[in-house]
Amino acid sequence: MIDRYVETLSTYAKDIDNLILLIGVLVGFWFILCEVIFFYFIIHFRAKDGKRAEYISGEEKSHKRWISAPHLLVLVCDVFIVVGAVKVWYEVKQQLPEPYETVRIVGQQWAWSFVHPGADHELGTADDIKTVDELHVEVGKVYHFKLEARDVIHSFSVPVFRLKQDAIPGRVITGWFEPTGTGTYDIQCAEICGIGHGVMVARIVIESPERHAAWVAEQSPITLAAANRP
């Protein structure tokens, strides 16, 4: 339903959508019901000829029932929400599936920078590819990310993944995603971080294995250095 408006492109995007939908429906149901009852009471018990509008202190049992019965029912709904939320939280944030590769993501005022591990799939080696504004990944592979911030708190957000993770100065936060389709999509900053926050955007390029390998080969600092040599 939600994916009709914002594409879903990660393995866990649908789970998060379903959770949002569950919460939306339950809360929405009670919201509408309450409003209907409120307005019914307001109109029904309004002042009429020869009868004053009544002030109800809510101490009688028959009055209290209007509070306590919905209260219990809402608590039952909460159980569903908590169970659903904990399940999704565990799957998305607690467990870490074995990675194919790990990328470094660095937020700063006001840009996202990335370190790709390059052809050897190892971070911290000579063939690491550093970019600004563009993260390149391969479709259908599990990625871990190591998220850092250079100055203030930022939040790494990829709407099509339904992924959002705060980046905090002095900490390296690990997370994961697995893209399920190819294309180029938005990366945003989702935490007010200063005057340039609104334009702190980047792109994620999700490629087929062949195209990704070609990009890695082309961008490898080792190839680039060889090309620049006179």
Partner: peptide
């Protein structure tokens, strides 16, 4: 256009670039 302010270590340039993009 990203000729300046898009290097991984250009911390100050990356602060200025969004301003020019505004």
């Amino acid at each position: 256009d990203g000729t300046r302010g898009t290097h991984f270590d250009d911390i100050m340039g990356m602060r200025m670039r969004p301003m020019a993009r505004m």
